[in-house]
Design a protein around this nucleic acid. Structure first.
Length: 271
DNA sequence: ACGGATGTTCGCGC
DNA sequence: CGCGCGAACATCCG
């Protein structure tokens, strides 16, 4: 589920579901989700508190509750917040917040790669997970010169740099793959080889890719309310190795870059 | 049944 | 300190 667009949609859902509402009860399993915190604090600190605000920085969700309680949520690879009313808890619910009217907000995470921590609300922004982040494309925008400076100072491949959260906050394997395709840049190009003009093109492509994904996944979320996976692949090239390039019809190829599968068109994205 | 998966972090070696 | 690589985490899905 989670790169910048999905986390942004999660933030919007959380605001809609429990903005201003009071938590009646809280439960948390003792799992590695609570690494730097403690499930007991989740259960003890949240009941009686009102959600006052939800922010997102990169892939990190920051929830502020009344009483100065803060909750940091990183969805990892398979984390997800869902709202249910009644019924048995969904599979892999690791923590939950009970609300008025029988509604329950569940944090689902089958693989336990995500993270939850309770900390003072006024220190959410100073958490290491947030402090280490570069500019967020949606909140701060992307400065082409600053990105070009990063590119010039590294010997890494451009896709690896795009996924470095210190450079830009929120891009993962999908968004980096899609943006490089839109910008017609091969993912394994040394970042330092990109011209100022190519970097500017890439900046536009990143914005386009994020906006596209937000629209597509936002629309499907409204349709289903309780989002279910398994729809058609909404991406241009991600997950489409061996299929025809949507731009030129050449067969899409893939290779591992920075330990992740990267899909590209050998003709549109020359090395 | 096997292989891969939207993320992060750690250890190892150069 | 930079960087590449592989592994680990735990489960699901095609």
């Amino acid at each position: 589920m989670p790169e910048l667009p999905e986390v942004e949609l999660a933030a919007r859902s959380l605001r809609r579901w429990l903005g201003g509402r009071v938590v009646r009860g809280a439960t948390a399993e003792r799992t590695r989700i609570f690494r730097s915190s403690d499930p007991a604090r989740f259960e003890r600190d949240l009941p009686g508190k009102r959600l006052e605000g939800v922010e997102r920085r990169g892939k990190v969700l920051l929830l502020r509750f009344s009483g100065g309680i803060g909750l940091l949520s990183h969805l990892g690879m398979t984390g997800k917040w869902v709202l249910r009313r009644g019924g048995p808890p969904p599979r892999h619910s690791r923590a939950s917040l009970g609300l008025d009217g029988g509604e329950v907000l569940h944090y689902l995470d089958p693989r336990l790669f995500g993270k939850l921590s309770i900390l003072p609300a006024d220190r959410l922004g100073q958490a290491e997970e947030v402090r280490s982040l570069g500019p967020d494309p949606l909140i701060d925008g992307i400065d082409p010169d600053a990105l070009h400076d990063w590119f010039r100072r590294t010997r890494r491949q451009v896709k690896v740099v795009l996924m470095d959260q210190r450079v830009l906050a929120g891009l993962g394997n999908i968004q980096a793959t899609e943006a490089l395709f839109l910008a017609r840049l091969h993912p394994s190009r040394p970042a330092s080889s990109l011209s100022r003009e190519e970097t500017a093109r890439l900046v536009g492509a990143i914005s386009d890719s994020i906006r596209e994904t937000l629209e597509k996944e936002g629309a499907s979320e409204e349709l289903t309310y309780v989002e279910e996976p398994g729809g058609p692949n909404p991406f241009l090239v991600y997950g489409r190795t061996g299929q025809p390039c949507p731009r030129c019809g050449s067969t899409l190829e893939s290779e591992s870059i920075g330990g992740r599968t990267s899909v590209f068109c050998p003709r549109c994205q020359p090395t």
